[in-house]
Design a binder for these strands. Sequence first.
DNA 1: GTGAAAGCGCTAACAG
DNA 2: CTGTTAGCGCTTTCAC
Lengths: 357, 357
Amino acid sequence: MPSEPPEPFPGSRPTLEAVASRAGVSRATASRVVRGGAGVREALAEKVRRAVAELGYVPNHAARTLVTRRTGAVAVIIAEPEVRIFSDPFFSRQIRGISRELSAHDTQLVLLLLDGPGDHDRLARYLAGGHADGALAFSLHADDPIPAIIRRAGLPTVYGGRPAADLAGWVRYVDADNRGGARAAVRYLRGLGRRRIAHIAGPLDQTSALDRLDGYRDELAPGADPALIAEGAFTEESGALAMAALLERCPDLDAVFAANDLMASGALRVLKERGRAVPGEVALVGFDDMDAVAAATDPPLTTVRQDVEGMGRLMARLLLRDLGRALPEPAGARKSEGGPAPASVITPTTLIRRASA
Amino acid sequence: MPSEPPEPFPGSRPTLEAVASRAGVSRATASRVVRGGAGVREALAEKVRRAVAELGYVPNHAARTLVTRRTGAVAVIIAEPEVRIFSDPFFSRQIRGISRELSAHDTQLVLLLLDGPGDHDRLARYLAGGHADGALAFSLHADDPIPAIIRRAGLPTVYGGRPAADLAGWVRYVDADNRGGARAAVRYLRGLGRRRIAHIAGPLDQTSALDRLDGYRDELAPGADPALIAEGAFTEESGALAMAALLERCPDLDAVFAANDLMASGALRVLKERGRAVPGEVALVGFDDMDAVAAATDPPLTTVRQDVEGMGRLMARLLLRDLGRALPEPAGARKSEGGPAPASVITPTTLIRRASA
DNA sequence: GTGAAAGCGCTAACAG
DNA sequence: CTGTTAGCGCTTTCAC
């Protein structure tokens, strides 16, 4: 077929009306069949189905949404420059989890990319205009205007990662036990006999970075030497820079806990360049357990694992529940109608031992 | 504001009717103002604008689409597993270009992720259901069902990368001059005095890989030794594997042209592991010039640059033109109405000299 | 310039 | 079980 016509429907697409008249039934009956066919005599249903097939009928989404007030789509908003979205495996994992769960419930995932502050207006119009039934947002920073935009749009929303303090009250979120994970990492390093344990923190306007820093401090209290803490930006490069700074300030450090694997791999690179043996002279622990990173370094990273894909799935599930499209409740459970809003969820983390510590 | 109410609109959102009555005008007039306000007395327009602001009115998208038959959204479809979408900088670049151009024309970009063959049905329904005015698709493989789905939906579409031969006739696309770029790379290597030039090809079910292979052959004709060609998958790992195989088969090779930078970096890794000096013993040239890859290796890669972001922008521009939302045509140009369908575009490539060859 | 009226294609009561 | 009847919220002729 070297050159087919590009458009099979020269004029307008067939409407439900066309299907109905072709099948010799009313529009209402045709509609019932199209939507699942409960309560329609099989003989008629069959006629309708045939008409649908022959005409190549597909329901008009706008018309349906106009009356049902549901779009069947969920917006996923990432408050992060594209560069990071597309380079940090964390995002792809979380999105995959979300995608799987939404697909299973026949809901379309719409990924909204923000290319700059100018796009906030467009986002607001998109959300308020009723394009999506709900929203999933993650990687929020402290002063991010996005939550306000979403709230104004009045959409059910679940956040990925605990939002800043002033939002935490009226917002639902799914987050890993960052503080607990960090504690486990540092405790492990101490168990190894390390005493000068440095920390490469993430950007401190994000709660995940703050919580990991707090966990680090918990284990060193009361004597965490501020010189042993450097702030990075969750990127490989920033991890390398932080490591260099730390080595300058504290040449005697014997361990490093980095707030994510990407920064840990940057730190590892610098440690090797400076001739510090890992784990011999400096033990190194990361966070995330992104296998594309943690298992691929030399030596592979000991790290704190969080189930990112599972968190994504959980976010989607919580949202779908709001939208009344969740799995049927377990028998005996009250109908979700008047129940309390589902609480936020904190998922566990586990320490994965590899060779770097 | 520690705990604001989550929903500013307890009941339903304000409608155009509400705006009109508050402003003391008819719905028709209110509508005119909302859409730009041409042909409405300024006094009235002002009243309407005030009412819009006071009520927080936002047009209902479904209602508007139902009558205008336009959604203001463009679907971007990537026929590639998420893993690659989110790890190959090529995609993020192209998407950024698309995103910028669409934003500039007030069009929403909707990124559709396909999580498996099961998602093809959902894609078909999404497209045919009139969610988007047009589609942008890239990274198609030879037997991909996606073009057929898009065609059945009857949406204007622009492809990124020349599609397989049987589609090339009735489809518009934007592609780099892959063959020419490959020729330039090989010619350059020959100019360096290299005589045993190997090629690490991309997956040969994609035309970009085929075209680069053809370009390589052009320059070596008639005597391209088949043993000097290995097929990879455009990933770092596959480049490493291909390089290992090539070294096994042809220990005497003195140059390698890889079909993309990711594979070149994998090849470089293996060459270093085997103690072959680059470029001393083996000269290496990549393709793409993704700076995250090509400029970051040691030594940095000589490579063939293609303007990926520009190609993305071009794809979007071609599509917008179809949708009648493009930039005004240059003065004197005929109105786009009855003109011929805009042709596909091939963008130039340039050789970038770095240290690897 | 402005308003009245007629739908866009579909779903959802409500009768039969 | 099936058909009839109203709209959902907006744009768009067409008169005034």
